[in-house]
Simulated scan of single mutants.
Amino acid sequence: MKSTDSFYMADLYGELQLAPSDEKRNWRAPIPGLLLVTTAALAALWLSEHYGAPQILLGLLIGFALNFTSADARLRPGLDMASQTLLRVGIVLLGLRVTFGEIAALGLLPFLGLAAIMAGVIGVGVLAARLTSQDLRFGLLAGGATAICGVSAALALWSIIGSKRVSQEGFAITVLGVTLASALALATYPALAAMLELSDTQAGFLVGASIHDVAQAIGGGFAVSEKAGEVATVVKLSRVTLLVPLLLLVALVLGQKGEGKRFSLRQGVPWFIAGFVAVVALNSLVAVPAALAGYGASAASFFLLLAVTAAAIKADLSGILAHGWKAFVPVAAATLTAFALALSVAWAL
């Protein structure tokens, strides 16, 4: 079984739950992986310009095609940097596309809807675990990971639940399930939004409220349109912030007794969310030069493309076949519930 640090792909909270490495960082180490991801991303851009397909989707598919390269340890530092650090920087830069006025224009309903969706998805995950004779805490892990932010939430929740309550194998199954579900959602949800003739706001909410992984949720929004991408960004980052009260609630309910790590608020408020809010505030209060805003938006889009491509390269899809189908029922049920509830709220907007 792989160690937990091999499972967070485009992960936002993962490294907060892991012990810092004693390995000395070499500034040259990320170069090979970054060159691979950049080449794949540029290929996706070229194909997108010539054939009209969404660049995020093409990056995902090219990344899956290059999945075999992830076995080379020399590429790992660069892949990690692209799927984590550059993702965070891209999210901060996305603040140049959003203002507080646009957030307020969404209204109260979307944010109340997010809380209801989170509760419903977690409840279905626990119920599905019970119906398939699995541990309820495994269902809580699967439902929580699906409701919030995929692998990131799985790592954070697992550190609270404890390895004695949910085994490392159970954690790995959850990670594999949400990774595949996010990939399938990115490939299908934008097309479904178009088939259902949703508006940009509705499509952005649907994608942002139902796709697990942050990079793929935001990328899926921009695959629909610029406006949908901006809405998906706000909605998805709002979901991410719900991880803080969820971890506190889980720690309270389970009543930790020496298992796993105790949760602190410092774990739950990473710098990229603070940075995103700060840039949105700047964009709302100050007239940012159009050229600067344009360069920032372009950089954000490219960084997100790099993150999605790196996530696909690192994904361990072959592990899905090693486990029985029942182990993936909680994630599958929670994923379908998230889509159905998000679509219901989107239609009400």
Rank of each mutant, 00 (worst) to 15 (best):
A223L: 07
V151G: 11
G260F: 04
G294Q: 13
G208D: 12
L114Y: 05
V124S: 10
Q55A: 14
E49V: 01
T132N: 09
Y189S: 05
P20E: 04
I56P: 01
S3Q: 12
L36D: 05
D80M: 11
G95F: 00
S182N: 05
I273T: 07
P190W: 03
P190M: 07
A128P: 06
I320R: 01
A312G: 10
V207Q: 13
L42S: 10
A223S: 15
V286G: 02
Y8Q: 03
L93M: 12
L192M: 15
A194V: 12
L61N: 09
L206Y: 07
F138V: 04
P190T: 08
V126Y: 01
A40R: 01
G229V: 07
G204P: 09
T201V: 12
L75A: 08
Q55R: 14
A251C: 02
M118Q: 05
I320D: 06
V124G: 10
K164E: 15
S163N: 13
L86V: 01
A154M: 01
F7Q: 10
N26F: 00
A287D: 15
A82Y: 03
S284T: 15
T174P: 03
L243S: 01
L198M: 12
A65T: 12
G63M: 02
L79T: 10
L94R: 13
G113I: 10
G123W: 03
K2W: 08
V37G: 02
D22S: 13
A332V: 13
F339I: 15
S210M: 10
V121L: 06
A153H: 08
Q84F: 04
D213C: 04
A300W: 02
Q267E: 14
A327C: 03
I173W: 00
D80S: 09
L180C: 09
T241W: 00
W347Q: 13
A43F: 11
W27H: 08
I211K: 08
F302T: 09
A348M: 15
L114A: 06
A332D: 00
S344P: 00
L157H: 06
V126C: 06
P54Q: 09
A290N: 13
A228E: 09
K314I: 03
L292Q: 07
F222L: 09
A307E: 04
A315I: 08
L292V: 15
G139C: 04
G144M: 08
M1Y: 07
F111V: 04
L93C: 08
A191M: 10
V280A: 05
A332P: 00
G294F: 00
G220S: 12
L16E: 11
A312T: 07
V92F: 04
S3H: 11
A40V: 13
H50K: 14
Q267S: 09
A129L: 06
P32G: 09
L176T: 15
A71M: 02
Y51T: 15
A29D: 13
L285G: 05
L96S: 12
S238Y: 00
T241F: 05
W347S: 10
W325C: 00
V288W: 06
L47F: 08
V280Y: 01
Q216D: 07
R97S: 15
S6R: 13
L47R: 03
A312M: 02
P289T: 06
F205D: 10
A128M: 07
A44Q: 08
V269R: 01
A348P: 02
V308S: 06
A300P: 04
M1R: 08
W158A: 12
S6K: 12
G162F: 05
V178L: 08
S301L: 11
V231N: 03
V235A: 05
A43C: 15
